[in-house]
């Protein structure tokens, strides 16, 4: 009767736990071996899963690991925020009803807290990066284009506060020639920039095949392989969603 209720992942999709033959556990595990986001949006015997939460979770983890600011996922955050609002109304309505419904409301509430946590974490790690590299980001068109409207406004304001502070507390008392905040001296710059060559750990999501990670070095990248590499060597693969940072 189990099949009546639908299995969403491949884990038990192929498995018949009641069958006489011992199931091949390694085969069953294939599905479970993936990371957190491998479940596709599927309709299966009335069960369905929505990819958005998984996508946002992956987006957050990528952002957390990447040394540089990644493009803001406007649509995804917008959609999920709206779904959270709608679900909140449902929860409120349920709580008014019977005690049995209050229990269900509590379950829904728990999921909402989880999603809100992911959204908050995502936005927070981005703001941290913007503050850290403000002198670069606020004056780089490329980086400004990766920000949300709110982040752009924050960056502009944060930069002016930051500069004002440095001027008022110190720089204005120095000779004019020493007041600059973005000077280059040899190969030493005053502007803090992220190190794009820093090491990241990535997992391959779809078979990439031979991939040139440096001018001389090629690696065969297959699904589920895990690599420690420099961020700039796999940036393309991250943009095309062939890998995730873990």
């Amino acid at each position: 009767m189990d099949e009546d209720y639908g299995d969403v992942t491949p884990i038990t999709h192929d498995a018949h736990p009641g069958a006489d033959a011992e199931p091949n556990i390694d085969e069953l595990l294939q599905g479970a071996l993936g990371t957190y986001g491998q479940i596709e949006t599927t309709e299966f015997d009335g069960n369905f899963t929505n990819e958005d939460v998984k996508k946002l979770t992956r987006t957050w983890l990528n952002e957390k690991q990447a040394p540089d600011l990644l493009p803001y996922q406007d649509q995804l955050v917008g959609d999920l925020t709206e779904m959270v609002q709608n679900q909140l109304q449902l929860v409120d309505a349920l709580q008014e009803e019977s005690a049995g419904q209050a229990f269900i409301a509590m379950l829904y509430q728990s999921e909402l807290e989880r999603i809100k946590f992911v959204i908050r974490s995502y936005l927070k790690v981005r703001l941290q990066k913007i503050e850290r590299y403000i002198m670069l980001y606020a004056s780089s068109e490329d980086h400004l284009a990766r920000m949300s409207l709110g982040e752009r406004a924050f960056a502009v304001r944060y930069k002016s506060l930051f500069e004002n502070h440095l001027h008022k507390t110190c720089l204005d008392k120095l000779p004019e020639s020493l007041r600059s905040l973005d000077e280059n001296n040899g190969n030493i710059s005053m502007v803090t920039v992220p190190n794009l060559r820093s090491a990241v750990v990535c997992r391959v999501l779809t078979n990439v095949g031979d991939y040139a990670i440096t001018e001389t070095e090629t690696v065969d990248m297959r699904k589920d392989n895990i690599f420690l590499v420099s961020y700039d060597s796999i940036q393309n693969l991250l943009d095309s969603h062939s890998i995730e940072l873990i």
Partner: peptide, 21 residues
């Protein structure tokens, strides 16, 4: 749920749900 639907829950039938649930 926002991330998907689970159920109906009919004992004693087995069903798959996320670990947090």
């Amino acid at each position: 749920f926002i991330s998907g639907s689970y159920g109906p829950f009919k004992p004693p039938n087995r069903i798959e749900v996320p670990l947090w649930l």
